[in-house]
Simulated scan of single mutants.
Amino acid sequence: MKKLLAVAVATAISAPAMADMTIYGTVAVDFIKGDVATSDVSKVERDDVVFGMKGSSQTDAGLNVSAEVKTEGDFTSPTLAYLKVDNGTVALWGGKFGSPADAADTVDYSNTGNVTYFSGEVDNAVGVTLSSNGFSAGIGAVRNGTTNEGTVAQLGYAVDGLSINFGMEETSNTVTTTKALKVNGVEYASKDEAAVGYDYKATGVKVAYAMDALTVGVAVADGEYALVADASDKVEVETTTVFGSYVMGNTTLSAFYAQDEAQSSVAGSAAVEMDTTAFKVAQNLGGGLSAYAEYSNNDSDTAALDGSNVTIGGSFSF
Rank of each mutant, 00 (worst) to 15 (best):
A28T: 09
K191I: 07
I312H: 11
D40I: 08
A153L: 08
E187W: 14
A303C: 04
E121A: 15
K179T: 02
G167P: 02
S190C: 01
N111G: 02
G52R: 02
V235I: 12
L83P: 00
T251C: 09
V247Y: 08
Q154F: 03
A103Q: 08
A226D: 03
E224F: 06
A278C: 07
V228E: 00
V85D: 00
Y209F: 13
Y246C: 04
E236K: 14
K84G: 01
I13D: 00
G156K: 03
G88Y: 02
A208S: 11
G95W: 03
N124F: 06
T22K: 15
A8V: 14
N148S: 13
K33V: 09
T239N: 10
G161Q: 05
K96E: 01
G94V: 05
Y188Q: 10
E193T: 01
N64T: 12
V237Y: 03
N184W: 10
T79H: 14
L92Y: 04
S163A: 10
N114V: 13
G287S: 06
T241I: 07
G120K: 15
S265F: 07
G150P: 01
A141I: 07
V128I: 15
V175Y: 14
I164E: 02
M248N: 08
K70T: 09
I32P: 01
E224N: 10
T239W: 05
S296F: 10
V218G: 04
T171Y: 15
A258F: 11
G268I: 13
A81T: 01
P78F: 12
A231G: 05
Y246S: 05
K201R: 02
V65R: 07
D123T: 14
A226H: 02
G167W: 01
D233Q: 04
A210T: 12
V218F: 06
T277P: 00
S190L: 12
F51S: 05
G268A: 12
V266S: 11
K54P: 00
L92R: 06
S296Y: 08
Y24I: 08
E236W: 05
V115G: 02
A28W: 03
G268P: 03
V183A: 15
M18R: 11
Y109I: 05
F316A: 10
A258I: 12
E238H: 14
T176K: 15
K201D: 00
A255E: 01
